Simulated assay, not measured.
Amino acid sequence: MPKTDSLHKQILDVIPGYRNAIERRETLRKLMRTNTWVGDFEATFRAKIADAVDTGATNLDDLRAEYTAARQEWKATGEFNVLITNAYHDADNAVAQTLSGGTAAALDYLRVEMDTLMADVRKNRDVITAHPSSAEQALDTPSGAKNWRTVTSLLGRYADLRNEHHSWIRRDGNIKGFEVCGQFTKLLADPHWQYRRATSPGKRATDSQIAAWFAGGTTKPNPTQSWPEFVASQAKDATDVDRPDIWPQSVRPNTWLLIVADNDPWLPDADTIAEVHRITTELFTRPMTESADNRWFYRLISELAQYGVDLGITAPPTSGVRETSWQTA
């Protein structure tokens, strides 16, 4: 049976203790009261004193006893109302703490949802591939409207998943590299890293295989063209550097969804994203000379592999010395 609740609500339902904390907070919100202002309280008894005197009273002991009891009740009620208010604030803090401690549970839930979504994407690959650029175009084919709804639903689910992912990991801070490290483990499928690889300043002085890999894994169409010239020509058409969202500008959303499905989609935590971004940035920006030892390069690739990142390249068996023979996965 399809789920009708929003993805955000589904996630909140699996956060341990969250619903109980919310119920406690909302109940206390309804129970909070504001005590009668002391001026109103005293005005009431001033009026009673005046009435007693006007009716011939010569002794106010009974009224004093009434006032003393009422004053104690008024004070105790006010203090109790403060306790309720403080309990409400405690409950509100408990809600925040529950959410703060629920990131792991939220990410686990999102990963299951991502697996389900990717299975649906692969099942509808042909429909996604043929997705037109407008609803009007979709209506020109017999199943166009149905297929349009199918693809837009899949795109919406992916956007919801990624937005929730971003929301949860940002509880640990503003994560640099979210858009380019949080889509899939095969980072070099992302236009951002393709550009960084093509324009990397340090790898042009290495052997031709390394230069080819940084230029996109292709061969030079013009044998007389130097590797720096070839890399520069590749970079001219590169886009989506430091893009602000999950959808690359150079790729249609339906095409991008298929790329994600084909490149091991993942939803890493904040620490993983931050570290992967740091290592990958160093990999693509650190200068290297012709006589440099490649050990640092292989070390960074190994570190990325430990985080589950696949660059499609492995170090030669003798990575302790400079090699010109590279293996590409």
Rank of each mutant, 00 (worst) to 15 (best):
D140L: 08
G144N: 01
R111P: 06
A106I: 06
K123P: 01
A130L: 02
T98M: 00
Q137F: 01
M114T: 05
W148H: 08
T103M: 02
V112E: 11
K123C: 12
A76S: 15
V82P: 01
L155F: 07
R122W: 05
T150R: 03
E79S: 14
P142K: 14
L139M: 06
R122T: 15
T116R: 13
W74M: 04
A94S: 11
L107Y: 11
T85G: 14
H89C: 13
E79I: 09
R125Q: 11
A76C: 06
M118Y: 06
T103R: 08
L110W: 02
Y88P: 00
T85P: 01
A119K: 11
K123E: 15
L117N: 01
H131I: 00
D90L: 15
A106D: 01
V82N: 01
T103D: 13
R157Q: 09
K123Q: 15
D90G: 12
T103E: 14
S153H: 05
K75G: 09
G78I: 05
V82Y: 04
T152S: 04
D140N: 05
A138W: 00
L154I: 02
T116S: 11
T98E: 03
A119F: 10
L117D: 07
A135F: 07
W74Y: 04
N93R: 11
V127D: 03
I84G: 04
L154S: 09
K146N: 13
S134P: 07
N81A: 12
D90C: 14
F80T: 03
V151K: 03
M114N: 10
T129Q: 10
G144K: 04
G156A: 05
A119Q: 15
Y109F: 14
N81P: 03
G101M: 05
T150Y: 00
Y88F: 15
P132W: 04
W74H: 14
T141F: 10
A135H: 06
V82R: 00
T116E: 13
L99V: 06
N124I: 00
T116N: 15
S153G: 07
E79W: 05
A96T: 10
P132L: 01
S153N: 14
T150F: 00
T141S: 07
S100M: 01
S100A: 10
L99S: 05
K146T: 12
K75L: 15
I84Q: 02
D108T: 14
L110I: 05
L155K: 05
V151I: 03
R125E: 14
D115N: 08
A106C: 01
T129W: 03
L117V: 00
A91H: 03
Y109M: 02
V127R: 03
A91G: 01
T103G: 11
L155E: 14
N147H: 13
Y88I: 01
Q97D: 15
P132A: 01
